[in-house]
C-alpha cells in the first residue's frame, strides 16, 4: 500500500510542477504559440491515458474503443456548451458544465456497453468496444442536430427536414461535425481535470472498490470464491473510465473551432492504448509521462522532418525502457524509499 501512496504523490507533484512551470513560461512569454496550443490536447490525452489505464491496467480488460467515449463526451459536451451560450455567459463555468455533461454521456455509453458484455467470462470487451468506436463515429457522421427556442431537432442522413426558428442554429452537421465552436477550453481547466482524474483513480484504487477490481484482474475465480460480485465491480471501473474519457472529450473539442467524428477513430483508440502500454499497465505516473511526450513529439519534430520517424521510434523505445525497465524501477523505488520510508524495501 505504501508503494502506491508514494506513486500517488509523484503523480500529483509532477502535474502540479508542470502546470506551475508552464504558467510562468506563458506569463513571461517564453513559450511558442504552437506549444501553447498543445497544452489542452496534452491535458486531454493525459486524462484519456489515465482513464484507459483504469480499464486495461487496473481492471485488466482490453478496450479498443476508448476514443468512442471521448467522441461521446466531445459532441454532447460541446453541443451543451453551445446551447448555454446565453444562459451561462461565464466561459469557465460553461466549460465545467459541458465537461460534466460529457462525463455523464460517456458514463452512460460505458454502462450500456457494460451491461451485456461485462457479465460474460472472456475477452468480449475488446471486440464490442472496437465496434462501439466505429458505430459512434458513424452515428455522429450522419447526425444532424439543430437547436432553437423550441428545443432540439435532430435527423439522420440529411438536414433537410430540420427547420429552425429565428435565432436557432445547427449544432451537428453530419460529417462536417460541429463548427463555430467557442474555444473556451483552457490549460487551467485541463490541469483541474487531470488533478480530479488522479484524485478519483487513486482514491478508487485505495478503497475497497479498487481492491476488489484488482483482485478480479489477478484472479477472477478466487475473487468470486471470496464473495466478490465480479460484474458490479467491473462495471464500476468501466463506467468511471468511460466518464473520464467523456469529460476529456468535451475539453479537447472546445480547444478547436471545428470538430468532426473522424477525429475519434480507431487510430485514436489505438494511440491511447499505446500511451497506456508504454507508460506501463497500472502505472498512472507512466501514463502521464507517455501521454505528454508522445503528444508533444510529432509537433516538436516537425522542424526536422527528415529524421522525424527515426527520432520518434527512438523516443518510443526510451519511454518504454524508462517506464518499464527493472533498473529504473529499482532506482525509482530507492528514491521512494528515501522519500517515504518505504517498508517494502526489505522484500527485495
Amino acid at each position: 500500500m505504501k508503494r502506491k501512496n508514494t506513486n500517488k504523490y509523484v503523480s500529483f507533484a509532477l502535474v502540479i510542477a508542470a502546470y506551475a512551470i508552464m504558467m510562468v513560461l506563458i506569463s513571461t512569454g517564453k513559450i511558442t504559440r504552437s506549444m501553447q496550443g498543445m497544452l489542452v490536447p496534452i491535458s486531454a490525452y493525459i486524462v484519456m491515458a489515465i482513464s484507459l489505464n483504469l480499464t486495461v491496467g487496473i481492471l485488466g480488460e482490453l478496450s479498443l474503443g476508448h476514443a468512442g467515449f471521448m467522441s461521446m463526451g466531445a459532441f454532447t459536451g460541446t453541443c451543451a456548451a453551445l446551447m448555454m451560450l446565453e444562459s451561462v455567459p461565464n466561459t469557465g463555468l460553461r466549460l465545467g458544465i459541458s465537461m460534466v455533461i460529457g462525463a455523464i454521456f460517456g458514463g452512460i455509453a460505458g454502462f450500456l456497453i457494460g451491461i451485456p458484455v461485462l457479465r460474460l467470462k472472456g475477452d468480449y470487451l475488446a471486440i464490442v468496444t472496437l465496434a462501439f468506436g466505429e458505430i459512434i463515429k458513424s452515428i455522429f457522421n450522419n447526425l444532424y442536430l439543430g437547436f432553437d427556442k423550441y428545443g432540439l431537432h435532430f435527423q439522420l442522413l440529411s438536414e433537410k427536414g430540420i427547420k429552425l426558428e429565428e435565432g436557432g442554429r445547427m449544432l451537428i452537421q453530419g460529417a462536417m461535425g460541429i463548427s463555430k465552436i467557442k474555444k473556451i477550453s483552457t490549460f487551467t481547466a485541463g490541469f483541474i481535470l487531470i488533478i480530479l482524474t488522479l484524485f478519483i483513480v487513486y482514491h478508487l484504487v485505495e478503497s475497497r472498490y479498487g481492491r476488489a477490481i484488482m483482485a478480479i484482474r489477478d484472479n477472477r475465480i478466487a475473487a468470486e470464491s471470496v464473495g466478490v460480485d465480479v460484474t458490479k465491480y467491473k462495471m464500476t471501473a468501466f463506467v468511471i473510465s468511460a466518464a473520464m474519457a467523456g469529460a476529456a472529450g468535451a475539453l479537447f473539442a472546445q480547444n478547436y473551432s471545428t470538430i468532426t467524428a473522424n477525429k475519434f477513430d480507431f487510430n485514436t483508440s489505438i494511440l491511447i492504448l499505446v500511451l497506456v502500454v508504454l507508460g506501463g499497465l497500472g502505472n498512472i505516473t507512466g501514463s502521464i509521462i507517455s501521454a505528454t511526450l508522445l503528444t508533444i513529439l510529432p509537433e516538436a519534430l516537425r522542424s526536422f522532418a527528415t529524421y522525424r520517424m527515426l527520432v520518434y521510434a527512438i523516443v518510443l523505445i526510451v519511454v518504454m525502457l524508462a517506464t518499464n525497465a527493472s533498473s529504473t524501477k529499482i532506482m525509482i523505488d530507492r528514491l521512494k524509499a528515501r522519500l517515504g520510508g518505504n517498508k517494502e524495501e526489505e522484500e527485495r
Partner: peptide, 19 residues
C-alpha cells in the same frame, strides 16, 4: 494456489472482507 498476486498479503485478506 489462486492468490491476488499483485496485491499485498493484507489486501488479499481485505478483499475477502469486502462484503
Amino acid at each position: 494456489i489462486r492468490l491476488f498476486n499483485n496485491l499485498t498479503v493484507e489486501e488479499n485478506i481485505m478483499v475477502a472482507m469486502d462484503n
